[in-house]
Simulated scan of single mutants.
Amino acid sequence: MRRTALLVAGVLLVAGCSSGQQAAQNRQGQSGFVSGNGNVSTFAAGDRKPAPELTGKTLDGATWTLSEQTGKVVVLNVWGSWCPPCRKEAPELVAASKELGSAVQFIGLNTRDLDPAPAKKFVQEFGVPFPSIYDPNGKALLRFRGQISPKAIPTTLVIDKNGKVAGRVVGEVTKQTLLGMVKDAG
């Protein structure tokens, strides 16, 4: 009897998670996401892999290209306005970008916002001072296959001055973590 009760509880728990995720997907019009746990990976200079070429239109209509940033450390943050962990980490990214100033280029990669209006509202609400490439269908994100899971939102990469990935945070990033990663990448 106890075994049956545990089995039923397990099935209900799984069903509850699935229906909760489905309800969230229906509200957001999104295909879901998997938020990481803030797992930090750093890579020694000799083990770093090149970041793929990234070019796109920003939310304000300008063109941004990663290869034009050679010689600068770049912080790439993948986010969506529909993503609760992205909202939680936004003030941390803003604070880090302000503290690091123009020595580091921050760029957002806004994904799966099918309409740019919510993404623009997010940027305004959190006072995000750096540009974000608008990638509604995730094509730019898919270029990072092997370095970023397309469903692990948010994810932040730190790209060294030579265009190689020096570190990655899967999940929410904190200002202190980011400052340390940028220092290590430089």
Rank of each mutant, 00 (worst) to 15 (best):
residue 6 L to S: 08
residue 133 I to A: 04
residue 15 A to H: 03
residue 162 N to E: 15
residue 78 V to C: 04
residue 103 A to G: 15
residue 118 P to C: 06
residue 17 C to I: 09
residue 86 C to F: 07
residue 86 C to Q: 12
residue 35 S to L: 01
residue 183 K to L: 05
residue 94 V to L: 08
residue 164 K to W: 06
residue 104 V to M: 03
residue 3 R to I: 03
residue 150 P to V: 09
residue 180 G to E: 12
residue 183 K to R: 13
residue 86 C to V: 10
residue 3 R to C: 00
residue 40 V to K: 00
residue 121 K to V: 12
residue 117 A to F: 01
residue 17 C to A: 06
residue 4 T to K: 06
residue 97 S to L: 05
residue 66 L to R: 10
residue 167 G to M: 09
residue 165 V to T: 07
residue 145 R to A: 14
residue 114 L to Q: 15
residue 90 A to C: 06
residue 3 R to T: 12
residue 168 R to M: 15
residue 61 G to S: 05
residue 151 K to P: 04
residue 7 L to C: 05
residue 93 L to Q: 07
residue 178 L to P: 07
residue 137 N to Q: 15
residue 97 S to E: 12
residue 172 E to W: 04
residue 84 P to L: 04
residue 37 N to T: 11
residue 95 A to V: 05
residue 124 Q to L: 14
residue 179 L to G: 06
residue 65 T to N: 12
residue 164 K to E: 13
residue 96 A to W: 11
residue 34 V to T: 12
residue 69 Q to E: 12
residue 86 C to D: 11
residue 149 S to D: 15
residue 21 Q to F: 09
residue 55 T to A: 14
residue 71 G to A: 02
residue 16 G to M: 06
residue 88 K to C: 00
residue 33 F to N: 02
residue 61 G to I: 02
residue 13 L to M: 10
residue 179 L to C: 09
residue 176 Q to Y: 03
residue 138 G to N: 04
residue 178 L to S: 08
residue 157 L to V: 10
residue 65 T to Y: 02
residue 56 G to K: 06
residue 149 S to K: 14
residue 136 P to I: 02
residue 86 C to I: 07
residue 149 S to C: 01
residue 49 K to E: 13
residue 152 A to H: 07
residue 141 L to D: 13
residue 41 S to K: 12
residue 52 P to N: 03
residue 80 G to L: 00
residue 158 V to R: 09
residue 105 Q to H: 10
residue 124 Q to D: 14
residue 182 V to H: 01
residue 120 K to F: 00
residue 111 T to K: 05
residue 101 G to Y: 04
residue 101 G to S: 08
residue 127 G to T: 03
residue 36 G to K: 04
residue 173 V to G: 11
residue 63 T to Q: 06
residue 111 T to E: 14
residue 126 F to I: 08
residue 28 Q to P: 00
residue 146 G to M: 03
residue 107 I to N: 11
residue 116 P to G: 01
residue 24 A to R: 11
residue 62 A to L: 00
residue 35 S to Y: 01
residue 121 K to R: 13
residue 118 P to M: 04
residue 177 T to Y: 00
residue 102 S to A: 15
residue 136 P to H: 10
residue 62 A to R: 13
residue 92 E to T: 07
residue 154 P to I: 09
residue 159 I to W: 10
residue 130 F to C: 06
residue 96 A to F: 10
residue 64 W to F: 11
residue 95 A to M: 09
residue 43 F to K: 04
residue 30 Q to K: 08
residue 51 A to S: 12
residue 12 L to Q: 04
residue 109 L to C: 10
residue 68 E to M: 04
residue 167 G to T: 09
residue 173 V to W: 08
residue 142 L to N: 14
residue 70 T to Q: 15
residue 185 A to V: 09
residue 32 G to D: 01
residue 158 V to T: 06
residue 76 L to G: 09
residue 112 R to M: 12
residue 16 G to N: 05
residue 168 R to F: 05
residue 14 V to E: 00
residue 162 N to L: 15
residue 93 L to D: 05
residue 90 A to T: 14
residue 133 I to C: 04
residue 80 G to E: 08
residue 113 D to V: 03
residue 151 K to E: 14
residue 164 K to R: 15
residue 179 L to M: 13
residue 95 A to G: 07
residue 163 G to Q: 12
residue 131 P to G: 08
residue 115 D to E: 13
residue 126 F to E: 09
residue 76 L to H: 10
residue 22 Q to P: 00
residue 144 F to S: 12
residue 178 L to Q: 06
residue 57 K to N: 04
residue 165 V to M: 10
residue 115 D to A: 11
residue 15 A to K: 05
residue 13 L to P: 02
